[in-house]
Simulated scan of single mutants.
Amino acid sequence: MQNIVGIDIGGSHITMAQVDPEKREIINSTYVREHVDSFGPKETIFSAWISAIEKVSHNLDKDDLLIGIAMPGPFDYENGISLMQQGKFIDIYQVNIKEELAGRLSISSDQIYFINDAGAFLEGEVFGGCVQGFSKIFGVTLGTGLGTAFYNGETATDEDLWDSPFKNSICEDYLATRWFVNHYAELTGGKISGTKDLLDQSEDIQSRMFDDYADSFAEFIIKYVKNYDPEVLVIGGNIAKVYPYFKKRLNQHLEEHKINLPIKISAIFEDAAILGAAGYALKKSYR
């Protein structure tokens, strides 16, 4: 069996696990999550990454190891070079991460593959999640930010719609967690941190907010997602967990616009990027 490690690199953590390519699932006993100071110097970042990778792969044959890494952009995914010029990871701008990791792990750079984090989420759902067997899939992650990806039957690509024009601003302002925070403050003068807090409020305010959110999400699907002509829409991220609260109104809007689009909720949520990065590495290694 091929030894594969899937890795999800975020702004404050690195999360990873070994993946069983036959069962298409994470081997839970190998799960590793470490804090990373992404604003720190290059050596601090790489030391944290290497420490975590060595923990997850210590019992694997390095000659037969594949590593798939889900990475935020901007990034040169083919060559493994960071293009992030501001904020997090600024000290590794233009560093060839693929070569750095390969050298520090004593493996070939050909054993390491990178994929965009939004694409990795959708690859994970295709590889071992809720949309196995579909060939045209649109994926949306609804959380702190807005992630969008499209799977064309071969590969999932980041569609980068988060800052596309929407109403009087951009898509992310209406579909990410901050919309719930801001809209709740507008309606009540109070504070919530997200959808979990909203569920503790009165039914009236919940209904009002989830209806407003459904209106925006439907408009987003009509304006952008419909153009891809997907067979299915898969939703992940924390907001997907409250889908039952806005499902009915969302589907009513889609029916009114004669959009017959099945919607599936992520089967693996936070693990989707790890599974997707591993599945992507496996797929690329065969080519």
Rank of each mutant, 00 (worst) to 15 (best):
S207H: 12
F180V: 02
Y228K: 15
T141S: 12
F39Q: 03
G124L: 07
T30G: 01
A48H: 08
I221T: 05
S216A: 09
T30I: 02
A17M: 06
F180E: 01
Q94K: 02
H183I: 06
F46A: 04
E99F: 00
Y31V: 09
E100Y: 03
V131Q: 12
Y184K: 02
R208Y: 03
Y286T: 04
D61K: 09
Y213R: 12
R24S: 07
D160V: 15
T144L: 10
Q206G: 07
G103F: 04
A118H: 13
Q86D: 00
V5K: 12
D64Q: 09
S216V: 06
I26G: 02
G143Q: 11
A214H: 05
G124Y: 11
A240I: 03
K136R: 15
I107V: 06
I239M: 08
D63F: 07
N79T: 00
P21S: 07
I81G: 00
L198R: 00
Y174S: 03
F150W: 07
V126K: 15
L161I: 14
K98H: 00
S266I: 03
G276H: 07
N260H: 11
L199C: 08
E231W: 13
I170Y: 04
T155Q: 09
D212H: 03
A52T: 01
V32I: 08
G145D: 10
D163M: 15
S266T: 09
D200V: 06
N251T: 05
F150G: 13
S38C: 05
W179L: 06
Y224N: 14
S207W: 06
H253S: 06
L83T: 03
A278P: 01
M1P: 08
Q85V: 01
I53F: 05
D212E: 10
E255I: 11
D158P: 07
Y280E: 02
H183W: 04
G11C: 12
T148M: 15
C130E: 13
P244Q: 15
L142G: 10
A218T: 08
A240P: 02
V140G: 11
S12A: 14
K136M: 15
N260Y: 10
N3I: 05
A273V: 08
Y174T: 01
E34S: 13
G189S: 12
E99K: 00
A118N: 11
I50S: 09
Y151I: 13
N238K: 09
K98L: 00
L122H: 13
I235T: 08
G103S: 08
K42R: 09
I259C: 02
H58C: 10
A118W: 12
L105K: 01
H253T: 09
T30A: 03
Q94P: 00
